[in-house]
Design a protein around this nucleic acid. Structure first.
Lengths: 140, 140
DNA sequence: TAGCAGGTTTACGTTAACGTCAACTGGAAG
DNA sequence: CTTCCAGTTGACGTTAACGTAAACCTGCTA
């Protein structure tokens, strides 16, 4: 440990690339790749990447998008919506229609999930019934 | 049209590969690829594939899995659960644990979707507010 | 001063999920 | 018989999303 000078920017909390990687259980390669794709844009101290809280939040959004199966290009457009609304009315209209689009995809996914969950319940019940039958007394 | 002999198997309804392709808006290549991956196994009349209702249902399951972002290997395991429960207790236990697994993924996705939808509502509201402001009277 | 941990760029490799020919087949229509 | 159409099997091409390896910098610490 060096003498003092420990917190040059004590404010908004910062992260190194490997800290983020550990936290979200991904590789640094992945994080750099996301930056390449325009999903992240951390500041730099010297040549090293420094991630602020906002960057961390963006990364979380990316990973959420991934869990939902979206390709990175879609995810990029989605998280750009979080940035400051362009200003131009045209731009705002575009954003609104993109939101409408993404929303309908998400709603479809909700339906799909509900159906799938119900069917799993069904299958599970039959499995358990079959298991109970296997252990039932009449097979001695 | 040939003379009669139109319905050799009038029973369970059959589909050609291109019929299914049209219905679900995918290519025949995709359907054959899914078969290659063990997701479908249609019967054959001569060398041509003939799809029964059960095959159609399986295809629907596959596409639902795709909409949820699952890789084909996961989808395969998932739809195998719809087949007859193996019989062996060990096999049934395995099925149950697989269901538990998949279910937790789906539940996570539900959470992700709800969050995302809420954030979209939020962004949308701010967009609309900004738009209203742009058209407001004070800029004449 | 040497070395090491953590970071950087560059570049090629890999896997999944198809797309895109090419060459062949079997039946119906003209 | 030829022609056409829907279907079939290879085989190679492509894109997304990283993995992996090489070569370099850099700020401590021993």
């Amino acid at each position: 440990m060096s003498l003092c000078a420990e917190k040059p920017t004590p404010g908004p909390e910062e992260y190194s690339i490997s800290e983020l990687a550990r936290e979200f259980d991904i590789t640094t390669r992945t994080i750099r790749f996301y930056e390449d794709q325009g999903l992240l844009s951390p500041s730099r101290r010297g040549q090293k990447r420094v991630y602020q809280k906002a960057d961390r939040t963006r990364l979380k959004l990316v990973l959420r998008g991934k869990r939902l199966g979206f390709p990175l290009t879609d995810i990029r457009r989605m998280i750009q919506l979080y940035d400051e609304p362009g200003g131009e009315a045209k731009q705002l209209d575009l954003m609104l229609s993109q939101i409408t689009n993404s929303r309908s995809t998400l709603l479809q996914q909700q339906l799909d999930i509900e159906l799938q969950l119900k069917e799993f319940d069904d299958i599970e019940a039959r499995c358990k019934a079959r298991l109970a039958q296997l252990r039932s007394p009449q097979n001695t």
